[in-house]
């Protein structure tokens, strides 16, 4: 459904002729009727890819086909297949829910009865049908996000692009939004491509694509990606992110492993067949009073991401000096 070939994008840096490469020869295929999560650290090229796919920018090189239409040569035909939910709200807060949906439908050539039916259909999955006359400015963040999704559905898109759509939502609203997405995919056989920082959102996706420095590091099912890592992860829990940050160098030095900070957790990948007990003992011996727990678990997508990109969300790995390898 989406076919990306050799896609590169170089940003201009001021007046300099040199630029910063945001996408570097990206090849990616998204099959019809699948849900793909596009993940990557900040600056990995996700937002640039999203801008290109939604037709807001033109690449330095490469091509994108959507439903067989070349996005850059026949943008109107390709864009007619797309529903887009941007990270920042794209609704007019002065207009009602109905007026916003109506305006967006009109931009896709809908009018009269078809338009009215489409508004009803687009909201049928949500609890917003009785909020049609309400101004968008009066809705909560979660409800406004549902209107965003309904707006994207107005054109009955074959492909739904979502750029971190759950940003700013509370856990309940986030869960509800993701459930609606899964339902839409199932019932309408929609192709969904969603960027996300939150890996729990990727657990139910068909495929996960991981970007870093403008390149595709991995693209597979969540299970296959976790299986590819194949090693368990030791997790040291601390009371706070600050405490974890302060302990990170000491833990890495003590265990002789490269460790990564993930919120209030310090994580390290165990070596293949490496027994975890000596490491757990070492952690408890040295840091018993400063931590809240230590555990070994199977790898998650979060761990795969850390493994592939070398960084936890918003952090850098701490690599100790090699002579301190206690595990060997």
């Amino acid at each position: 459904m989406i076919r990306i070939r050799g896609l590169s994008y170089v940003y201009a840096l001021g007046r300099s002729r040199e630029g910063r490469t945001a996408l570097d020869g990206l090849d990616l295929d998204i099959a019809a009727g699948t849900m793909t999560i596009l993940a990557g650290p900040n600056g990995s090229g996700k937002s640039t890819l999203f801008r290109l796919l939604s037709g807001l920018a033109l690449p330095s090189r490469g091509s994108v086909e959507i439903g067989g239409f070349d996005l850059f040569a026949a943008p109107a035909q390709a864009r007619a297949l797309l529903g887009v939910v941007f990270q920042s709200p794209a609704l007019d807060r002065h207009l009602s829910v109905e007026e916003n949906l109506s305006l967006h439908g009109a931009l896709f050539g809908l009018r009269g009865r078809v338009l009215r039916d489409r508004i009803r259909e687009s909201l049928s999955w949500s609890g917003l049908t009785d909020r049609l006359p309400d101004r968008v400015g009066t809705l909560s963040g979660g409800l406004a996000r549902q209107v965003e999704l309904a707006k994207a559905l107005m054109s009955a898109p074959s492909v739904l692009l979502l750029d971190e759509p759950t940003t700013g939502l509370d856990p309940a609203a986030r869960r509800s939004f993701l459930e609606q997405l899964a339902r839409l995919k199932r019932e309408r056989e929609m192709t969904i491509l969603m960027t996300s920082h939150v890996f729990s959102e990727a657990e139910n996706a068909d495929r996960v694509a991981i970007l870093s420095q403008g390149r595709l590091l991995a693209h597979d099912t969540p299970a296959a990606l976790c299986g590819r890592l194949g090693r368990n992860v030791l997790v040291v829990n601390t009371p706070s992110e600050e405490r974890a940050r302060a302990l990170l160098p000491s833990v890495a030095e003590r265990l002789g492993h490269s460790c990564v900070l993930c919120g209030s957790e310090i994580r390290l990948e165990l070596g293949r067949d490496e027994p975890p007990v000596p490491l757990i003992d070492a952690v408890l011996d040295s840091f018993r009073d400063e931590i809240t727990g230590v555990a070994v678990r199977e790898p998650t997508l979060d761990d795969v991401f850390v493994h592939l990109t070398g960084a936890g969300p918003g952090t850098s790995p701490f690599v100790p000096k090699p002579q301190m390898d206690l595990a060997s």
Partner: peptide, 8 residues
């Protein structure tokens, strides 16, 4: 950006 992404 919503308008710019529409096929108009």
């Amino acid at each position: 950006q919503g308008v710019m992404a529409a096929p108009v």
